[in-house]
């Protein structure tokens, strides 16, 4: 789709594009190219020279049990966050969509967690589940459950999932509610007159009509859990205890920034890029929305 009537000129449009293209070039393409290039190189022990090693970095990374563990953590973490945040949001949106008094007030009171930074959300949950100072952390220990997310990896994973999902529900809620409100009342009334019970109405009419929204949200939630939750994990568990909550993103950070392992980090970046490209492709392939060029 394009305009029929347009302005002529070559210099002006390029000038208008210049700021964006310069920033994109310097801070996106150059580093991305460096990452791809660097993934084929290896630094010697003294950091003096970098040699071409072919696919060795990728082979090492993919054979590294820590990396595979981080991959598995990412799968567990992302799917739990996505399913949890989508399920709760859909349930709340269905309730808010019923023509009830005060629906707008509920809406306002439910959407604000979107504005809370992932790292701040992590700290809020830390206050609740800290084994010594947290209300719930102490209560759990009080009733005989040994709760200490700083020692127990499964508990740490549960806590980062809760903190990450808590924040994402509001985003999903907004989209589900918008989706529900766009379903024509007449369709639902017709089903009700035909004698379909609310539960049946939900599964046979509402749910299929919400499928595009749900699928779009699923991709967005997975991307969120993959990339935006770095702050949650960094502020709450630092990937620990051990490697229990270290996801792929967290591992790139640790290997690159703390361990200064240049080649391994670059190879991990390239793998992540492939994942993002895959997710974006899926999003645009199945959710035909934004681009029609």
């Amino acid at each position: 789709m394009r305009k029929k009537v347009i302005f002529k000129g070559i210099a002006l449009p390029w000038l208008l594009l210049l700021p964006q293209l310069v920033i994109t070039g310097v801070f996106f393409f150059w580093p991305a190219g460096q990452a791809i290039y660097g993934s084929f190189l290896r630094e010697d022990a003294f950091g003096l020279s970098r040699d071409f090693v072919g696919l060795e970095n990728f082979r090492d990374v993919l054979a590294d049990p820590n990396y595979l563990a981080a991959g598995w953590n990412t799968v567990v973490f992302s799917s739990s966050v996505a399913i949890g945040a989508l399920g709760v949001a859909l349930f709340l949106a269905v309730q808010a969509d019923k023509a009830i008094r005060g629906a707008d007030a509920y809406k306002t009171l439910l959407i604000w967690p979107y504005a809370v930074a992932p790292a701040v959300a992590a700290v809020l949950w830390l206050f609740m589940f800290h084994p010594q100072i947290g209300l719930f952390g102490r209560a759990l220990n009080g009733i005989g459950i040994r709760w200490d997310y700083q020692v127990n990896g499964n508990q740490a994973m549960l806590l980062v999932i809760l903190a990450a999902a808590w924040k994402q529900v509001s985003y999903n809620f907004i989209f589900f509610l918008a989706g529900l409100q766009s379903i024509p009342r007449a369709v639902l009334e017709a089903a009700a007159i035909d004698g379909a019970r609310p539960f049946r109405r939900f599964w046979t009419i509402i749910f299929p009509l919400l499928a595009p929204t749900s699928f779009f949200l699923l991709v967005v939630n997975i991307v969120y859990a993959f990339f935006d939750t770095f702050g949650t994990i960094h502020a709450l568990t630092k990937g620990g205890p051990g490697q229990a909550t270290s996801t792929l993103i967290y591992k790139v950070y640790v290997d690159g920034v703390q361990n200064l392992n240049f080649g391994a980090s670059a190879a991990q970046s390239v793998i992540l890029m492939a994942i993002v490209i895959g997710l974006t492709a899926v999003q645009f392939r199945f959710v035909e929305r934004k681009v029609h060029y």
Binding site: F28, A32, Q34, A35, G38, F227, Y253, S269
Partner: peptide
């Protein structure tokens, strides 16, 4: 397709 997180070190 290139969020900051995937190109941390080179950036």
């Amino acid at each position: 397709m290139l969020p900051v997180e995937v190109r941390i070190i080179p950036t």
